[in-house]
Amino acid sequence: MKILVVRRDNIGDLVLTTPVFRALREKFPEARIDAFVNSYNAAVLEGHPDVDTVHSYTKGKHRSGFFPGWLERLRQMLRLRAERYDHVVIATPGVHPRQIRFARFLAPDHITANVPAGWKMFGVDQPVEYLGKDRHHLLMTYRIVQPFGITAEPSAPRLAFPSPPKAKGEPPTIAVHVSARKPSSRWPEERYVALMRAIHERSPTRFRLFWAPGAEDDARHPGDDGKARRILDATRGLPVEAIETRELPALIAGLAACDAIVCSDGGAMHLAAALGKPVVCFFGDSESQVWRPWGVEHRLLQPESLDVADVTVEQALAAYEELRPAIEKR
């Protein structure tokens, strides 16, 4: 049996899809299970034991040229069609006619996808009724395995990146990721500085500083290089290591070497959770019931205003202290 799972979204979405691959592998241990993802998130599945081959494509906005990009996309689609998959699984929650058309082009024996209640969609012979955003995104995604007769509860998301060994008595290393796409999820940089100082004063702790790379005034790919420099200047005297991660594998490997993370809602939060790291996370105007960390101890800070600027350093420190026993056991 040959199965292709399609998940072309952001980093966190793909992380939360890893239980689907685990469930399919447990149900069909001899099957070939492939993934079709985008070039931006493909590293999430690097070396994953439940995935045989990762096929990735580059989104249009990231291609170097229109015609060369589309020509290569056509060639890739023809190569995938030639694989003659038995099943194509559209793992993205929601109803996605474009992805279903893509699946039909591949001419598999079966197509599994979400469909609206009471609808039939051409080509989808293994439909899953889409119920809307009524639960965590992982659970919404995991419903796609129902037509395969899988009834087991989902496993926790996991990545194949190992955590490096740690010497006995070595102080904890805390990842501090200071970037967020939504303005309402951006905790002020001076509070990150104050939090790191407060944590270190209470117990010897090392920190690794992560951020979205790029200039703050870059219209196409704005980043937080300036913010990171200011935080590093303000934390002189503390054991803070700057981790510049211009590629996703570097971010994952950097997080794997930490014992916990303080961050806003986003891809880094889901990566750290999938690596088994305790999480202190800030949620602004986001659906915390849908996107909270899954499968690890965590403390979620979301003020009534839905703006993380209203979260105090004292609140963040109290959340960290609640997790400290779990962090120091690692």
Results as ranks from 00 to 15, higher is better:
residue 25 R to P: 02
residue 106 L to Y: 12
residue 71 L to W: 13
residue 46 E to N: 11
residue 118 G to L: 06
residue 102 F to L: 15
residue 60 G to N: 04
residue 58 T to N: 03
residue 122 F to P: 04
residue 19 P to E: 13
residue 122 F to M: 01
residue 29 P to G: 02
residue 79 R to M: 04
residue 19 P to N: 14
residue 20 V to H: 12
residue 19 P to D: 12
residue 76 Q to H: 09
residue 25 R to E: 04
residue 47 G to A: 06
residue 40 Y to H: 12
residue 111 I to M: 06
residue 62 H to A: 15
residue 79 R to W: 12
residue 109 D to H: 10
residue 52 D to Q: 13
residue 87 H to K: 02
residue 42 A to W: 03
residue 35 A to G: 08
residue 35 A to D: 07
residue 57 Y to C: 03
residue 49 P to A: 09
residue 124 V to K: 01
residue 38 N to Y: 01
residue 49 P to V: 13
residue 21 F to K: 01
residue 122 F to A: 14
residue 123 G to N: 12
residue 70 W to H: 15
residue 124 V to D: 04
residue 98 R to T: 14
residue 115 V to P: 05
residue 67 F to P: 00
residue 80 L to I: 12
residue 36 F to S: 05
residue 25 R to C: 02
residue 19 P to C: 08
residue 117 A to T: 15
residue 81 R to E: 12
residue 64 S to R: 14
residue 121 M to P: 00
residue 49 P to I: 11
residue 128 V to H: 05
residue 124 V to P: 03
residue 44 V to G: 08
residue 20 V to F: 10
residue 46 E to W: 04
residue 62 H to C: 01
residue 48 H to D: 13
residue 67 F to S: 13
residue 29 P to E: 12
residue 26 E to H: 11
residue 112 T to G: 02
residue 79 R to V: 12
residue 71 L to N: 12
residue 27 K to A: 14
residue 37 V to E: 13
residue 65 G to D: 14
residue 106 L to I: 11
residue 91 A to G: 09
residue 123 G to Y: 10
residue 109 D to N: 08
residue 124 V to L: 07
residue 92 T to L: 06
residue 50 D to L: 09
residue 128 V to K: 05
residue 127 P to A: 07
residue 85 Y to Q: 01
residue 119 W to C: 08
residue 80 L to H: 05
residue 57 Y to M: 11
residue 97 P to I: 08
residue 88 V to H: 09
residue 69 G to P: 11
residue 49 P to Y: 14
residue 80 L to V: 07
residue 94 G to V: 06
residue 49 P to F: 09
residue 81 R to W: 11
residue 123 G to L: 07
residue 124 V to T: 11
residue 64 S to T: 15
residue 44 V to L: 04
residue 114 N to L: 07
residue 97 P to S: 12
residue 34 D to E: 14
residue 61 K to F: 11
residue 30 E to P: 00
residue 86 D to G: 11
residue 60 G to D: 10
residue 62 H to T: 09
residue 52 D to P: 06
residue 101 R to V: 11
residue 97 P to E: 12
residue 90 I to F: 06
residue 45 L to P: 02
residue 115 V to D: 09
residue 28 F to M: 14
residue 57 Y to D: 15
residue 107 A to P: 01
residue 121 M to A: 08
residue 128 V to D: 09
residue 93 P to W: 07
residue 119 W to K: 09
residue 103 A to R: 03
residue 21 F to H: 07
residue 96 H to D: 04
residue 84 R to W: 09
residue 110 H to M: 00
residue 121 M to D: 01
residue 29 P to Q: 04
residue 22 R to I: 01
residue 57 Y to Q: 10
residue 21 F to C: 05
